[in-house]
Design a protein around this nucleic acid. Structure first.
Lengths: 223, 223
DNA sequence: TTAGTGTTTTTTGTATTCAAAATACATTAT
DNA sequence: ATAATGTATTTTGAATACAAAAAACACTAA
């Protein structure tokens, strides 16, 4: 194999992205061991950048290293999912606050179009489309309100909750008909440039999701 | 050199810890380039685990990699310090809430002894001791209230604020005589097992610090 | 002097190598 | 058959090797 060594600046970031997608797309299943030599060959790189990428993922908690045994795709329990949503509650609350402080008029216009494809009077059937819009919305807010540190944390917590959809097929904990109103309320508060309300509403949105998750867990335990 | 390779399970975690301390203790100064070969030799390891450790630190934002140029100790501006304290506000707020929910009686007793060495009627002169107690307190709360993900994020934001002392020699933004009452209020709320108050008071504590920091920045700009 | 150019040295990113550990496999004894 | 033991294979963690890029240095020409 040719020595790519000095030609590329960042082979491990590339590998990192690929692995992340493999986990998100469930090509690598939770609990599974990651075969280093095999994947390295598939990607046409040596184990060096692959291991670097795996260590990134380890810090992002998407992967776990058992010393002398290798890397395994991480498995999250429902309890851990609750912790992750609690984190998102405070982090995205902060993001919403900051966004309300610094959003531009043009951005407010763009934001107004989010969720407009969905009719409030009719039951939302297309979960996939709604889930996608949900992500787009949270990403949009993040882009405006979060600086790099917060952004990188949010990115990984988001990926975690979306890639480990324990609840239903599209990673939604609650029904769109319930959450769309909360989303619109957040949008409205940000448009008003009301940081306090934006943070409060975003947190309430997550708190409800956490409550739903907790209920699910209790139901499981009863069963 | 002896091949430690297969004897140790985790050389890079060890190197990571050492580097972290070198940054905290200002043996490596912000902006400085990290000489890989030199440090590797000092620690008696090869560049492999050192680079792995540097990549950990990169994700923690303590270090920054300029492609093809090497790793540099990260430099934070006052504005970025504000962002970091905003993060701590919401994260430690969450931690305080969780701690109030699950603290044991024994832990409450231990917690009651925090800051007891300081006399409320007398001006606190020993900044170093106070700073140490401050850290101990935040670490104590974290141990109880934060699960792994939150814990690891808190650890790095803490290190950043304490290692980049822009304000005064011990990394304190405000005077102990001011903050000790806030600390005691948080302790009291947690002892009462009042999650809401604990979170609220912890956040208020940080909000005041952020306000002080912001004032400093404005004063700088005027000068 | 100073700017520009060529040359040497150092450092970087990645591949390769290697000993030790873990695992898989086979063989024998029960 | 099943368990216990020994042997071969694979995989891991880390050192080393090496080509290309960057930095340091030296020399010449304005």
């Amino acid at each position: 194999m040719r020595n790519l060594g000095a030609e590329h600046a960042n082979l491990d970031q590339k590998v990192h992205q690929i692995l992340k997608h493999m986990i998100m797309d469930r090509q690598l299943l939770p609990g599974e061991k990651i075969p280093q030599e095999k994947i390295a060959q598939e990607l046409g790189v040596s184990r060096t950048p692959l291991i670097a990428a795996l260590k990134y993922l380890e810090q992002e908690k998407l992967v776990e290293s058992k010393p002398r045994r290798g890397f395994y795709v991480r498995l999250f329990s429902k309890e851990e999912m609750v912790s992750i949503f609690e984190l998102r509650e405070v982090l995205e609350g902060l993001t919403a606050r900051r966004t309300a402080q610094k959003i531009t008029d043009a951005e407010i216009e763009t934001m107004a179009r989010f969720f407009s494809q969905f009719d409030l009077d009719r039951e939302i059937m297309d979960f996939k489309a709604y889930s996608r819009e949900d992500r787009r919305f949270h990403t949009f807010i993040t882009e405006i309100g979060a600086k790099e540190f917060l952004k990188s944390i949010l990115e990984t917590t988001n990926i975690i909750s979306f890639s480990y959809q324990l609840i239903n097929s599209e990673g939604l904990v609650r029904s769109p008909d319930e959450t769309i109103h909360e989303h619109l309320a957040v949008i409205e508060a940000i448009s008003r440039r009301d940081p306090k309300a934006a943070e409060e509403l975003m947190r309430r949105h997550f708190k409800k999701t956490i409550a739903a998750l907790t209920r699910d867990i209790k139901a499981d335990e009863a069963a």
